[in-house]
Design a binder for these strands. Structure first.
Lengths: 227, 227
DNA sequence: AATCGTATTATGGTATACCATCATACGTCA
DNA sequence: TGACGTATGATGGTATACCATAATACGATT
């Protein structure tokens, strides 16, 4: 029996905590709170219109995501991302994504491949519209389908967590000249290899993709460091 | 100037939260709270002698470590570990540890190598004493030195988090017959390769080590599933 | 003028009270 | 007897009040 999806209750009632978490996370990712900004519990609570209890839990959560770091006797600040850490995060992504790409090629899940096709096509469109936010969202969809079809739930969690920490770099990388061509091409190669069931090719293609992104990101970081 | 380490203040004052976190984590890892146990905030707080505020933060933290999962409208329970997830975690460890082993071989940090030697010797001793808790602790020291000498701080964090989730399996694996021989041998090979600066050999040796552990763990899980 | 000590304040740590909601148990009515 | 509705209780969500402490600022003393 097919359940009419009009009836399906899609989302649990969101708690204040979840809303606040999203808001603060977005604020950090959108650089409204630049790295080093102190996140004072009372101030944040006032700005958000919630109590300190909620704010505390949000801050702790973001800490576990690596977006916030707590300095003893000084409180939490928005995490700074040093170039070494950024490089390591990209390296880890390469490791995890290529492993997942290989697994996805072996799994050859039709539904997942359809999702990835769709996502890739949306990515191309988003690039021509210069809608970078949508590029990020659809890229996430692409990879989510890839990881889950390869049964890499834990790895996917880790990648998402890592991506949070480098999200600023990701946006900058996506917006960098030439990436609108190179990015989709590389994703296409990953997808082709997965569709063909060629694990090794998928692994290599995804390694190349991360490597290219990493190179751009590190160049950007160096530029900033020089200033 | 060398600062006399008598003066060094080694630890910041521990908050109730940190103490409670350790206690609850240990209780889970030592299986005093078997998987599926409900962690009611009030009850836990009463048992620990702390307020719900503290307990809540502890539970959230453990959730981010994967040791606790929250069921909607039912509250948090001690996470269950299904065989697929366990297998994936071991696979990820293989990926991360081999990468770190390669980096450590290239770095060839003398201090780190000394630490690893010491840790390995302690592991051997702990095995003959059948002090499995110490085996775990010294193995952690071994790997910590390896990861950090390879400048893999982020990866090390991830491995520690993963290890938390499989810690029960780890203890069982360590205590399984034959492991007291095989385990230290494999670590020795990793260490030898690192000392010799042979990255590829180090990578292979550490892959083998995780693979062996994984095989034992999965066998144990299957045995339990049959019962 | 410099340094030391003290007062003030900002801030995180903790406890607690209240509220909303979901699950369960019990009773009533057909 | 079964099903439905209502009451009750357990539990998580949230706000708030109070406390301890560390950073800061200011003043006194040499």
């Amino acid at each position: 029996m097919t359940i009419p999806n009009v009836l399906r209750i899609s989302e649990a009632p969101r708690t204040l905590r979840e809303i606040a978490l999203d808001k603060v996370r977005s604020a950090i990712l959108d650089q409204h709170f630049p790295p080093g900004t102190r996140l004072t519990e009372r101030d944040l609570g006032e700005q958000l219109g919630v109590s300190r209890t909620v704010v505390r839990e949000v801050i702790r959560h973001l800490e576990s995501e690596g977006l916030v770091q707590s300095i003893p006797n000084q409180g939490p600040i928005v995490a700074r991302l040093d170039p070494e850490t950024a490089a390591e995060i990209y390296e880890l992504r390469g490791l995890l994504e290529s492993s997942a790409a290989g697994a996805a090629a072996k799994a050859a899940d039709r539904a997942a491949i359809m999702t990835m096709r769709e996502a890739l096509s949306n990515i191309r469109k988003a690039y021509t519209d210069r809608n970078f936010r949508s590029v990020v969202a659809e890229t996430t969809r692409f990879y989510e389908a890839m990881f889950l079809s390869g049964n890499k739930r834990v790895a996917w969690d880790m990648v998402q967590r890592l991506n949070g920490r480098i999200s600023i770099l990701r946006s900058m990388t996506i917006a960098s000249p030439g990436r609108e061509q190179q990015g989709p091409e590389q994703l296409q190669k990953i997808l082709d290899a997965i569709e063909a069931g060629q694990a090794d090719a998928a692994i290599n293609a995804s390694k190349l993709h991360v490597l290219a992104a990493s190179a751009i990101a590190i160049r950007l970081l160096d530029l900033k460091a020089q200033k």
